[in-house]
Amino acid sequence: MPAAIGTGRQAVFAPLDDGAGRSEAVVRRLGSAIALGLIADGEQLPAESDLATSLGVATVTLREALSDLRRRGLVETRRGRGGGSFVRVFEPALTALTQRRVRELGSADLRELGEFHAAVAGTAARLAAERATAAEMERLVAAVDRYADATTNAARRRTEGRYYIEVAAAAQSVRLTRQEIELQSELAELQLFPPDTTGWATATLGRHRAVVAAVGDRDGTLARRLTEECIGLRTLAMIEVHLSLGPTPGDTLDGDADVSWSTAKGELDDEPSR
């Protein structure tokens, strides 16, 4: 059991206040915390009554949510001495949760999220180009290298998020950094990956390298423009997936774990009337 609890984790167990079905909201909150690594693989969740209290839901709602998470393979319950609910990192289930979340949002929500992220990260990149020291430049290069080394979707989500956080820190702005951390937590819930994950990652990697090169050249205008373009492309890709998923919020556990970028696009092609 890790001793340290970061600020991101405090939010995980904060009361829920969104209008979605209560047990669904619990599933989403815990699911994204697992996806972000805020709750580690194998970590034990607090006792049911404590968890229900801190999330502000009834124990029966929490049980419903835990049983949903158990069906998805994200939580494992062990009985007896030393028993309890333990977290399991299970990629397909996390992807399914992500897609359900994307479907709940309107494309305008995604557009706005992308625009706001471009504003924050674009400004951060411009300021980083003016202010980054040699040591901070090295950290940026290392951050992009970690993204290059990532081989799983979870690792890509995490390393890309950390790249943006490093840029904001190099900008010498506490406010931009905090905003970026918040945005990354929100975005990581939503990022979808095409079946051609390697191709997408390679393209993204090239864009990040170009930004870091512009920062190194102290070309703030270029760093900003490239960052905005990169985020713009990701936003469009996300909206495309969102639209292709269709309006049905039917959340079949087995089915949507398999929905990939290409099958989602395929559905779109089959239904030109949409």
């Binding site: 991101g8 984790r9 690594g37 580690a40 290392a142 937590s185």
Partner: peptide, 19 residues
């Protein structure tokens, strides 16, 4: 101060690489 020391987390506080 509570920090996240899990290297697999987005919020990982990386002491080793800190100056």
């Amino acid at each position: 101060l509570r920090v996240d020391l899990n290297p697999e987390s987005l919020g990982f506080y990386d002491c080793d690489s800190a100056e």
